[in-house]
């Protein structure tokens, strides 16, 4: 089981993501934004950071990176893809996920431990969780406010495509407290908070983030 972790110029969390993949039980494969080869990976993680300096819009330039053309093609064929934070932004810019991530409503860059609820445990990235399970993982972003039109929001709600919601006060102005969503097929997941920073209690607020990385293993073994 090989899980690719993409590094763009300006990516920050690729090492933590790769470590989380390994602790989850899979082999982590480094992919470079300029690669024209997915190196036979079974799934891909787009980690957090500031790819291409967030120039133009977060994720807007990464979308056109050579490796992303292959990721988009593979995702459309059903390969599991998880985008965390900046990775979520890249997935939205790539139109693999609907909506967009905009500036936090209060303009502040957030960095804190955030309680979220897993509201769809049927995806290859969330099947280790119980439906409705509440977990605490770090949230750190400047542009994490999930926005879409009313029709898209109704579709996401109606089709059960919201995978996680913030608990308590809305941290960034996201519509309907959305912390993560999935595509129609359910193989592509975008998540604003960071499970890869919460894989053991020594370095994170919990070890509950690991569930995202054990889920992908379950999904592949099935």
């Amino acid at each position: 089981m090989r899980v690719g972790v993409i590094t763009f110029p300006g990516t920050l969390d690729d090492r933590d993501a790769a470590r989380a993949v390994v602790v989850g039980g899979a082999e982590a494969v480094s992919l470079w934004h300029g690669d024209a080869d997915l190196k036979s990976v079974d799934a891909v993680v787009l980690p957090g950071g500031f790819s291409y300096g967030d120039y133009l819009r977060c994720g807007a330039i990464s979308r056109f990176a050579p490796v992303m053309q292959l990721v988009i093609e593979a995702a459309n064929k059903g390969m599991p893809v998880l985008g965390i934070c900046n990775g979520f932004q890249v997935l939205c810019e790539s139109h693999l996920l609907p909506g967009a991530l905009t500036r936090n409503a209060d303009l502040h860059f957030l960095c804190r431990d955030q309680e979220i609820e897993i509201v769809n445990n049927q995806t290859p990235w969330t099947n280790s969780f119980k439906q409705g399970q509440q977990i605490v993982i770090p949230l750190k972003n400047g542009e994490g406010s999930f926005q879409c039109d009313d029709q898209t929001l109704a579709m996401l709600e109606g089709e059960g495509r919201i995978i996680a919601r913030y608990i308590g006060e809305n941290p960034n102005g996201s519509r309907n407290l959305i912390a993560g969503i999935t595509n129609a097929k359910g193989n592509v997941v975008g998540l604003m908070p960071h499970p890869e920073h919460a894989i053991n209690e020594l370095t994170g607020p919990s070890a509950q983030g690991l569930g995202f990385f054990t889920s992908i293993l379950n999904a592949m073994v099935k």
């Binding site: 819009r57 807007a60 810019e93 609907p98 967009a100 905009t102």
Partner: peptide
Amino acid sequence: VLLSNPVI
């Protein structure tokens, strides 16, 4: 395609 994001 690039300069704007038609979603927002």
